[in-house]
Design a protein around this nucleic acid. Structure first.
Lengths: 149, 149
DNA sequence: GTACGTACTTACTTTTCGTAAGTAAAGGGT
DNA sequence: ACCCTTTACTTACGAAAAGTAAGTACGTAC
């Protein structure tokens, strides 16, 4: 192994993670937590322990494939604990680890903010989309719009 | 307009948004904010105003296509303000709206937590994958990791 | 004995994403 | 004079991800 490579690894160990760097592993973790279903799984698990099918029913629209995949990612990152009772028919339940609870705290905070801020977001969306009221707000500065939108 | 339809609209206006419901518009907003590049764009814009190319350089790995798309989504939701100076060559800068700043607060909180928690996440990942190259991980605290009792 | 529930996995299809190139106009270099 | 670069995008196309449907190995209820 080259010296420069090893030196880089040492730096990696001590330097703080930076999600803006594409090769930083923290970005993958961010992606797992903020993935389409990851956020929702974490938010639900923040309220207790659940079985696979229970999560599937709670999270409207998630497929079995995606739920399984999401749970595996979260488990590998140490956010979720999978407890297989080893019975037949299968019985497995999922809980947050202490690390997962910390992460979930931020995620439920975000989700809660979105849910309570939706009226304001809707207002902004309505102002941005000239659908219905023709004489909307500032047409802003001439933003060229191609004929074939 | 039918009575049932009007009643539904009243409910829509007063009921709180719920991201667990697949048809709830809040889920799309959540997706925009937590999309792969959405989080990073919001986090960067939380530190000031930037031009398109500046954002592109700051956010390592983002393509022009995705940056443009992400910014458009965030603009439509009312989180980002696009200011086109109407000059040639083009000059456009992006800032957070007050609404966007609130959202960004939660996102930078999450990002900061991930960055400072990476050592623990790495330890968990190492414990989960006994076959991986432990070379990439340096246990920040030189201590054996319990098998997640 | 037929149907259903559990926790997944495996093929196949659709949607999304990333890469590369194109666009209009100004400015710098040779 | 002419080419090249910069800016903020858009468009086409191949690659990767996500969604859909079906299969698996049982056990229970009807």
């Amino acid at each position: 192994m080259e010296t420069a490579v090893r030196a880089q690894k040492m730096l990696d160990s001590f330097a703080r993670a930076n999600v803006l760097a594409s090769e930083c592993p923290s970005r993958q973790v961010l992606q797992h937590l903020t993935s389409r279903w990851g956020v929702l799984v974490m938010a639900v698990l923040a309220t207790g322990t659940f079985r696979f099918a229970q999560l599937r029913r709670k999270i409207d629209g998630v497929s079995e494939r995606m739920l399984a995949q999401t749970l595996q990612q979260l488990e590998q990152d140490g956010f979720v604990l999978r407890h297989d009772h080893g019975e037949v028919p299968p019985r497995v339940d999922y809980t947050l680890t202490p690390l997962g609870e910390e992460a979930a705290g931020h995620l439920v905070g975000l989700v809660a903010w979105i849910e309570e801020s939706m009226p304001r977001v809707k207002a902004a969306q309505a102002a941005a989309a000239p659908d219905g009221d023709a004489d909307a707000i500032t047409p802003s500065v001439g933003r060229s719009v191609p004929a074939t939108a």
